[in-house]
Amino acid sequence: MTKEVALNVLGEPLVPCSFDPLTGFFRDGCCKTDENDLGRHLVCAVVTKAFLQFSLEKGNDLITPRPEYQFPGLVPGDQWCLCISRWSEALAANCAPQIKLESTHINALKTVPLDTLKQFEASE
């Protein structure tokens, strides 16, 4: 049985998003998903102070370390697999972080057009 290769929004194999901090629904460094990922953690974002504050105000504290969940807390510049709905909310609020297209899952295109995602492509 061969395992299906996850693709990014460019139609290429998905590149890991971050191993430090370790991200992804499966905590494997990649923004992979399956039917158990109700939040759809698809977007590899480079978080900013403005986005972290926005997320906190929406009830999702990504700043405070939570050792019981092996979560170190995020700081600006960290890469993290975000839920597509939260990234879209941040877009509407003018605080969407930049993203790594090669590390953003193809299923993000079901919610956000590629042209929009490309406007937020992080430079190396």
Rank of each mutant, 00 (worst) to 15 (best):
S123L: 12
E57C: 03
I63H: 01
T104C: 04
Q53S: 08
P67G: 11
E102M: 07
C17L: 11
S55W: 08
L14F: 11
N94F: 11
D115Y: 00
L7P: 10
A50R: 14
G39W: 08
V47I: 13
C95L: 11
D61K: 00
L56N: 02
L22F: 02
E57P: 00
G59S: 05
G73T: 13
V75R: 15
L74Q: 05
C30W: 14
A96C: 07
A108M: 08
A45D: 09
K3C: 05
L38V: 13
L74M: 06
L38F: 09
L14C: 11
D61W: 01
L42C: 05
L10I: 10
D34K: 04
R27C: 06
F120I: 09
G29Q: 03
C44H: 06
C17M: 09
S123R: 13
L56S: 07
I84C: 03
D115C: 00
C44I: 13
K118L: 04
L7F: 15
P21T: 04
G59V: 04
C30Q: 15
G11M: 14
S85W: 00
C31L: 12
I84Q: 04
L82Y: 04
C31Q: 08
I84V: 15
Q79G: 09
F19P: 05
A6P: 06
T23Q: 07
L82V: 07
